[in-house]
Each structure stands twice: as C-alpha cells, then as structure tokens.
Design a protein around this nucleic acid. Sequence first.
DNA 1: GGATTAATTCACTATTCGTTGAATTCCTGA
DNA 2: TCAGGAATTCAACGAATAGTGAATTAATCC
Lengths: 205, 205
Amino acid sequence: MTTAEEPARRRGRRPAGEDTKTALLEAARAVFAESGYDGATVRTIAGRAGVDPAMVNHWFGGKEGLFAKAVLHVPFDLNEVVETVTAGGPDKLGENIVRTFLTRWDGAGGESFVALIRSVTTKPEAMQTLRTILVNRIFTDVVRTADSDRPELRAGLGATQMIGLGMARYVARIDPVASADIETLVAAVAPNLQRYLTGELDLPG
Amino acid sequence: MTTAEEPARRRGRRPAGEDTKTALLEAARAVFAESGYDGATVRTIAGRAGVDPAMVNHWFGGKEGLFAKAVLHVPFDLNEVVETVTAGGPDKLGENIVRTFLTRWDGAGGESFVALIRSVTTKPEAMQTLRTILVNRIFTDVVRTADSDRPELRAGLGATQMIGLGMARYVARIDPVASADIETLVAAVAPNLQRYLTGELDLPG
DNA sequence: GGATTAATTCACTATTCGTTGAATTCCTGA
DNA sequence: TCAGGAATTCAACGAATAGTGAATTAATCC
C-alpha cells in the first residue's frame, strides 16, 4: 500500500521539540494548498511531516489551530509590501504589484496564499482573511498613495485582477498563464492593473 | 432543533416522479454553491429538497452523479454564447463579454457557475470543467474571431479577468464590486478585457 | 378492479475523520 | 546519577458520512 514505509519512529521523547512544530506547519501549508481545509486530513498532514497525528492536538490544539497558524497567519510584513510596491511612484504601481505578487506567490512562502484560496470554500475565516489582507490592507493603502477618485472601487477592481491571476496560474492552472515566465505576465497584466488604480474609468451616470 | 419540521411525508409512491428529480437538482445547485462539493452533504441537499437522501442514489447514482448533472452540466448552449458575444464585431468583445457573463451569473440560472467555482477546490473535475468551458470553448473561440496574435495567451488573460471578477463579486463578495450594478462594472472592466483580446500586449523578448 | 411496477422511506453498514487519554521513551536539572 | 517532566506514539471512541437493501405505498396497465 504505502510505498516504502517511513523508518518506523521509536516512541518517547526525541531531541529538539521545535522540529516537529515546523515540520507540521510546512506539511500543513502544502496539504491545505492541495486539498483545502476540508479535503486536508490531520492524518495526511501528520504523515507527510513524519509525525503522529496526535501532535497536531498537542502543539496546535487541533486542526483549527494548525490552520490558523499555518494559513491564516500572514508570514510577512504587509507594510513592507505596501512600501515596496509604492516605491516607484503611482505610475509604476501596476508593474510593481504584479511583479511583487507573482514573485512571492511563485516562491515557496506564497504556498499559504494558494492554501487560502483553496480553503475559501469551507472556511469563512479564509475568505475573511483574503478580503482583509488583499483588499482592505494592500490595495486600499496602495490606491491611497495614488490619490485617485473612487478609491474603494479601484481597490476592488485591482483585487479582481490579482485574484483572477492567482486563480488561473496556481489553482486552475490555465496554460499558458500557468507556465509563462513572470516578466511576460508583468508586461501583459500590469497596464490593465495600472488603469484600474490610476487610469480613466469612464463610469456611467 | 430544526425549525418547524416539514409536514412529514408519507411513504410510498407519490404522483409525478419528475418533481423529485428537479427539486434535487435545484437544491443541489444551491447547496453546492454555498458549501462546495465536500462541504455539501447528501442529507442537506435531500433535506432542502424535502425528500429522502436515498433518492440521490436512486435518481443520480450517488453524490457524484448529482454533482455532474447539477453543476458540471452546462445549462445553456455554448455556441449561442459565443455568437451573442461576437455579434458586435471585435471592438465590442470586451463590453459584450462582461455584460453577458455578469447578466447570466447574476441570474438564478448562473448559480451553477458559483457552485462550479466553489467546487474547484475539492473536485478536480470541476476545475477541468472550468478550464474547458471558460477558456477552451468560450475564450478561444472568441479570440479566434478577432484574429489577434498570441491567441492562447490572450484567451488565458481574458479568463483571469473574468474568473477574478466572478470570485470577487460572488465568492469573496468584495465591496463595492459585489454590490455595483452591471453597467458600472461593464464600463470599468470592459476596456481591460478588450486590451487582453485585441489590444497591444507589448511582450518582452 | 386486481396485478404489476415505480417511487419513496427506513434502518442499517462500512468507512473515515478529529480527538482523547494512557503508555512509553528520552532529555534535563539538581 | 536519578527523579521528574516533556515529547511522542498507540489504541480507541464518538460523530458524521455516503451508500445499500428491504419494506411500503400509490399510480398504472389490462
């Protein structure tokens, strides 16, 4: 059944308790990213971490707690992201945002974002986090630096583009968007995002 | 517990067998849309339809079959959509697509699209359907009528925008995108989609 | 109007999951 | 060096799930 059983851990205390915790966090991010909150099982996560399922309860108080720490907790400084993205001035916002997000998402750290999107279905908190982080924090702050009209709408529109880009590249894996290199996507998407943030919207009424 | 128990159906055959089938389909679309494939339980669906859970097996061969019929099966003619959208010529593509999709999605029949997006997480087939329908069928055919360069990339880019718009408006419910009227969103989004389909992409290399 | 058949419900099973508590083994500090 | 505690495993429980098969009732056909 299970290909090449793991080397059969002995019982009892093992050196360095911290390893288990981080191993669980990494495995959790990966499994939540693949299967979402419901699809991921504690047994699978623990198995991939090479640890007993009971450790999830011991260290995180249960699946819920592990999800909160592994996926809901933002692993980087949001203010730093806003700063990075706004550094080039309002005219470079689109380009900077697309490049920054794709670079982070492509890297391992961004796995938690995929896990987030994958879990939006069954975990309302995941949706809340997506909204809060991506829109309320990032885009609202960024748009403010550009001093455009209708800032809330612009923030929302920007979010649609980035969420859609993430969905297509990481979740739905739609080619050639999924396999394109970052600079190609920057060139293709940045102008559209730029229009949302600082361009003319030509709204009716 | 359950507020005001349903009027306690009698056993045995009841008139007009077709009602149960369609009641199940409608309930399934609603529940799958709310909870995704895994989150939705056969008991919940049957309960909302006012029938016994066993009917799901009887009529659709199980949860899987019900999902296929209710969510994966496209409730309208794809060729008709392509025709509608391309009717105004290449320059009206963005506008027509945004308006057509939002109108359909806002309507009750489009509930299945929300169910689809919600189920993309846990059902690989749902993802496959999303890819096939939205990208391969719709966008690829549409882009072809415009005779642009890089048609596959353009189709994919267009998909990112529409998926993101659907996610923001229906799944994540990001305001003001979620509450805006259709024409506002058409004015805001259509130019961006138009650039993806027929505009200058300025790709590197 | 009686036999047949289709539609429906009910009770049950097997499985899977998250969680728990006890048992076990190893580190650590005095 | 030895006692206490911390990290880990193990076995098992209770809840919830999808699916199955027999029993039951009503419509349909001749």
